[in-house]
Write a protein that binds this DNA or RNA. Sequence first.
DNA 1: AGAAATAAGTCAATATGACTGACGTAAATT
DNA 2: AATTTACGTCAGTCATATTGACTTATTTCT
Lengths: 182, 182
Amino acid sequence: MTDVNFKNQSDRIPSPDEKARFGGPAQEPDELPYDLIELLFFAYRDFTSDPDDVLAQFDFGRAHHRVLHFVDRNPGIKVTDLLNILRITKQSLGRVLKQLVDQDFIEQRPGPLDRRQRLLFTTGKGHDLAVRLSRLQTKRLERATMDLPDGAADAVRQFLFQMIDPDARPDVAKLVRLPSQP
Amino acid sequence: MTDVNFKNQSDRIPSPDEKARFGGPAQEPDELPYDLIELLFFAYRDFTSDPDDVLAQFDFGRAHHRVLHFVDRNPGIKVTDLLNILRITKQSLGRVLKQLVDQDFIEQRPGPLDRRQRLLFTTGKGHDLAVRLSRLQTKRLERATMDLPDGAADAVRQFLFQMIDPDARPDVAKLVRLPSQP
DNA sequence: AGAAATAAGTCAATATGACTGACGTAAATT
DNA sequence: AATTTACGTCAGTCATATTGACTTATTTCT
């Protein structure tokens, strides 16, 4: 047994009933770009798998990664804004944030203007981890964009951006600091 | 308060300490394509949100969706192959699969050659739901690819494909039935 | 100055999706 | 006949998320 993922899936024999009910896998007229749906699934699955291994060493999960990433990228971000980016509840954030703070990956400082706020910053340690994780994802992204035709990387950017809910796009554009977004 | 997602994130004032420690958000030399990392996150977040709403009406979650999707697309798939596609354990699959079978979205038939196998098929009802969910994702994908330059959609396909672990690519290519993969 | 709104944290209870490890059964393979 | 395979299942656990209610401190509004 190799460690290849799913092998003999094509060895299957369709049952008679199946042949009756299904006109082959793409019985919906090929209008449906199933391939993109599935490619996105697999691409994202593997995209998140690199950091997972490192995070496991710290007893962290993906939730920690997301928090760490956006805090590192947006030093001084407010809890409320982080909640809206991640689209999770205060309670969900609270747990992972507490762990990150307790273990000295993130620190909180009262807002200088509004002292109710607890602005979030990565510590040196937190920043290092954030960068380390980003590098992993970056490597994969670079490998994936490397041998694309000229300008294709920008097409990918545009595609991904347009996959986002229209009303969320302005905020994402700001957050992501897109090189040029019309 | 509008229902826009994360607004005043750019209104924050960097603390003195922050300015000392951070040379701005992109202190890592711009080698790191942070934008792609984040765009992928947001794109995938919204990509999965459309089906989620429908699934909730049936008391299903994303796990059900994935199973339903791959069974619908690969009628007669074996449990083992499905496990390898989804990269989850038998127990995790078991729970959601049981619910889908009990509620008549998926049916199991003994393999005609190997009677140990329980080949999986969507029922009419299951197929309808699968298509309905795919259409939602399809719409978003079409909107996103629509105004891309010529050939850009293929660049996106290639990009996504190359984001996948190299050793998983042959299997994905087979499964996804890519139009043309060199 | 007092009332209302906001930022953040917290409590309790719950759900979902995942995990490990062990075991059982039927059927196929050697 | 022994072993392997395909699948299912039991028991226990964990991580991540949810809702709703409540507290505290602080700011803003009137």
